[in-house]
């Protein structure tokens, strides 16, 4: 089925790797993520998430980026199975 495995960075599991297929939100939000390397096509790995809707740390290439929970909901990834 089309669309399976598509999930936001906020809701995927720790340790999962995926390819960003869309970044939602307005231009401003997309630009903020883009300059840190999170954009359509980026492969990232959700390293860890703080408790209670806390921020997520995602590994993007050699970098680790902390993404607030609300922002992470805008990052849609296709999880590699």
């Amino acid at each position: 089925m089309k669309g399976t495995g598509c999930i936001s960075l906020a809701s995927c599991k720790e340790g999962q790797t995926g390819k960003v297929i869309a970044v939602l939100g307005d231009k401003h939000v997309r630009e903020r993520l883009e300059v840190l390397g999170i954009r359509k096509g980026t492969v990232l790995m959700k390293k860890v998430q703080q408790m209670g809707q806390g921020p997520i740390i995602a590994a993007v290439g050699n970098l680790e980026i902390a993404v607030g929970f609300d922002l992470a909901r805008n990052v849609i990834i296709r999880v590699e199975v």
Binding site: R32, I57, I65, L71
Partner: peptide, 9 residues
């Protein structure tokens, strides 16, 4: 805005 920052090694 939501937190968004590089976490340096």
């Amino acid at each position: 805005p939501s937190l968004l920052m590089e976490v340096p090694p």
